[in-house]
Design a binder for these strands. Sequence first.
DNA 1: GATTGGAGTGCAATCGGTTGCAAAATTGTT
DNA 2: AACAATTTTGCAACCGATTGCACTCCAATC
Lengths: 332, 332
Amino acid sequence: MAVTLKEVAELAGVSRSAVSRTFTDGASVSDKTRRKVEKAATKLGYSPNILARGLTTRRTKLIGLVSDNFHNPIFLEVFDQFTRKLQDCGLRPLLVNLSDETDPENSVRLLRQYSVDGVVVASSTLPPEFSKAFKDAGIPVVNSFGRYSSTPNVHVVGIDNVECGRIAARELIKRGYKRLAFLGGPETATSTQDRYSGFSDELLAHPTIEVSYTYSGAYSFKAGRTEMQRLLETGSPAEAYFCADDVLSIGALSAVTDADLNVPEDIGIIGLNDMEIAGWENINLTTIRQPIQQIINSSVELIVSMLDDPGRYPEARLFPCTVVERGTLRAP
Amino acid sequence: MAVTLKEVAELAGVSRSAVSRTFTDGASVSDKTRRKVEKAATKLGYSPNILARGLTTRRTKLIGLVSDNFHNPIFLEVFDQFTRKLQDCGLRPLLVNLSDETDPENSVRLLRQYSVDGVVVASSTLPPEFSKAFKDAGIPVVNSFGRYSSTPNVHVVGIDNVECGRIAARELIKRGYKRLAFLGGPETATSTQDRYSGFSDELLAHPTIEVSYTYSGAYSFKAGRTEMQRLLETGSPAEAYFCADDVLSIGALSAVTDADLNVPEDIGIIGLNDMEIAGWENINLTTIRQPIQQIINSSVELIVSMLDDPGRYPEARLFPCTVVERGTLRAP
DNA sequence: GATTGGAGTGCAATCGGTTGCAAAATTGTT
DNA sequence: AACAATTTTGCAACCGATTGCACTCCAATC
């Protein structure tokens, strides 16, 4: 069915090499044969088989996009941006859905079998060792939304989660809240750990402020709602909550309003991510914006540059986050 | 870096064919050599290059997953299910983000270059001709969430959108609403056209009921909100709206509550899809459930069966939809 | 003990391309 | 017009696998 090099060569009356060269830029072909070849190619509807080409060039233009989070709406934005940006760079995303699996070996084997040029691990929950496994297998990798480390052995592009915790704390203090709480995602998620540490660290300087810490089982609406319901039933709730994720925040929000409490009058909530839904007028969540697009563009640019220089010195690229003021925190 | 067949053969002291045969099931190899090969393979960490294999077997186990909708949260569920199910079948999704493009030619060329085994077009807005282009190119294709046609030339798996329109109409009538309205997505979307036609058709039998029809520019929150705001300003709004999509409904919902009207007392709304968010307690949207998982499993099974029988007679698989009662429609 | 048959093996061609190298064609120089 | 320099070209090997075919074993049968 598919047209091959050979057929084009025959029709054009040239060698296979000639055809190949007209389709690889930088190769030397005379205008005359190029024209002949192009004519034959369009007539036959030929376009080179990238996978066969990859066998010799060792470039498949395939990038593994691995993620363990297909439930948080923010990831739809992430996939959208990634696929667009990769397409702009002439690359194709091969999607890997981790779904619970945390052992990198399977993914490494799999992506090696497809000889991907590189891998993007898009996750704020997986440990750095996960991405490291790709590097060890000789596959260029960048960990997007991952944990920044002062001694990184793998490229990380994302935000400074510790600093985000600080920002949240400062924002709540600035608005005069005296009894704060941290509502995290899974305790094992690196992003939750870091946001916790920044939040609590910032509060060290404010001993008069009361704080409490809890975690929910997942970055999900239900987890946030359930945890907030529990908090509202047992003991006295805090004045303001930093929920380590938007979807968690919205779950918490729903629990608060269900309990006939008002936001932000009775309880304040600040989230993190600024996913599209947070801006919907019937949600209207005050949150800390993570610059998704910058992170993704930068990730792709980084992986592209690694294709030419696989041994590139590991680097962390962090983007600043800013508070987006909406309706779930009272005025200062 | 990567280990090849040849190296394994040398280490095991057998021919390359022998190695190849131990890795393809159904091939004849003695236990003795199989053991030798397996030992060498695990020692070297070998696993066959699927792309090179594909050159001769004409099977890459790659499935193109093309979509034009990376903004509707329902598609995150769609991607999740698709990747899982494909993985279960030993296939890999190659993601294509159409982003505005409606001409199939580019996608066809692209996916042909990667010699995908098949293509799933996941879209409720693209016309059947889009999928047809893949078929014409000799690539097995199924159109998931696409338009059912009585003379399909391409496999379609999804719902009967016309029937959904009817269901919506019946549901609103059953609840005693007298002044209804249809709020569609883009007029060019096949799903909107079909839902419209079912809705209006059902109302033909109820001449006493008043109906009006409008469309919004996209299946998005903002489009739904803007359109509903317009409706509330100009003229008198209907008693109940069938919004042809959940995200549209939620936008409309936000406009209604912003106008200090109550749902469902003043205005009723029914959506379509039943995406996860619709069930969130602070949204609580009454909607028509589309059985995503069944559609996707069936789509993948269909594409798998086409791998063995590419000429398979085109078929439409439709799944019934049901009303999920929540809080945006008044009791009958 | 010779014959038959089936299982197991390796050779070599092939899939659809790329690329080093040497030969051929073109261009420029005198 | 002869020669050198440069560009174009095709041959053939190779990328990492599979597979038809012929060949070798070895056990079973007569």
